[in-house]
């Protein structure tokens, strides 16, 4: 384990360095996301106003605000751009530079991204989440934060991230076969946004559709941790959801290994 960390922690350091080098991009992207949250806020406010009741499928307007912002914040931690990074390296042939090093392919990506995530966590996630809690304090008039719930939420987020990472690695390796992933990636991310329940809470869906989507792996990307955070799951249901997340992580880990070993036989490094 020590050797493992010694080998891969440097990639985390490199990830942190990399993220700081591109902070201008990062800030622009962040501002765009916040604006998206506010736009969605007004959309939902209109929906609530036209429905004429103060709750909607068990969500109050305050819940909705929390849902929007926490979904967005969770996305910062769980989104992985592995498919983009792997795809890009396959396309430009730089994957060769990874293959000539005695390191495991997926771990270098994982630890590199963890570097970026640790930065996002401290600089964006923590302050924003504090903001959400302050908002809750003022609307409910009391402190709603519970360490236990938060711990469960973080556990769920960690698994969401691992799932997201391995799923994206699987997609990324498609680049070995497709050579150009771009259009494919856009299609993937818009479908995922919907399936993961980050655009519309799954609770708002018709019952049959909702239960199918809850069992699909994609809801574990965003919906599961957010619902845990908001305390919408009972203890038992939360345990079941966490178990399901774990199963999907293991499943996609195995699939990614199979795809990787097949893909490496197909590498055709172009140029130079």
């Amino acid at each position: 384990m020590r050797k493992f960390l010694k080998t891969y922690l440097p990639f985390t350091r490199a990830g942190i360095h990399g993220a700081t080098a591109y902070r201008a991009n990062f800030i622009a992207w962040f501002i765009g996301d916040i604006m998206y949250c506010f736009v969605m806020y007004y959309v939902w406010r209109a929906v609530f106003a036209s429905s004429g009741s103060s709750t909607f499928n068990g969500f109050s307007m305050t819940d909705m605000v929390v849902f929007l912002f926490v979904t967005n914040l969770t996305g910062y931690l769980t989104e992985s751009d592995g498919s983009f990074a792997v795809g890009e390296e396959v396309r430009d042939g730089n994957i060769a530079m990874r293959l000539i090093k005695p390191v495991s392919f997926d771990m270098t990506f994982l630890f590199n991204e963890l570097g970026q995530k640790s930065l996002t966590f401290t600089l964006i996630f923590v302050p924003m989440l504090a903001g959400v809690e302050i908002y809750k304090y003022f609307t409910y008039g009391r402190v709603m934060f519970s360490i236990g719930t938060f711990a469960l939420y973080m556990l769920s987020v960690a698994m969401s991230y691992m799932f997201s990472f391995y799923m994206n690695v699987c997609f990324g390796f498609m680049a070995f076969f497709l050579k150009n992933l771009w259009g494919f990636n856009i299609l993937k991310s818009s479908i995922l946004r919907f399936l993961s329940g980050s655009v519309i809470p799954l609770a708002f869906m018709p019952d049959t559709l909702r239960s199918v989507m809850e069992w699909l792996p994609f809801s574990s990307l965003s919906y599961t941790p957010v619902m845990i955070y908001m305390g919408k799951y009972s203890g038992q249901e939360a345990a079941l959801r966490l178990m399901l997340q774990f199963v999907w992580v293991i499943g996609f880990y195995i699939i990614s290994k199979i795809i990787l070993s097949a893909a490496l036989k197909h590498v055709t490094v172009q140029g130079g």
């Binding site: 490199a14 360095h17 990399g18 730089n94 060769a96 090093k101 140029g271 130079g272």
Partner: peptide, 10 residues
């Protein structure tokens, strides 16, 4: 490889 680098860019 003369046309690529194995060094970390950043």
């Amino acid at each position: 490889f003369g046309q690529r680098t194995q060094l970390w860019w950043d």
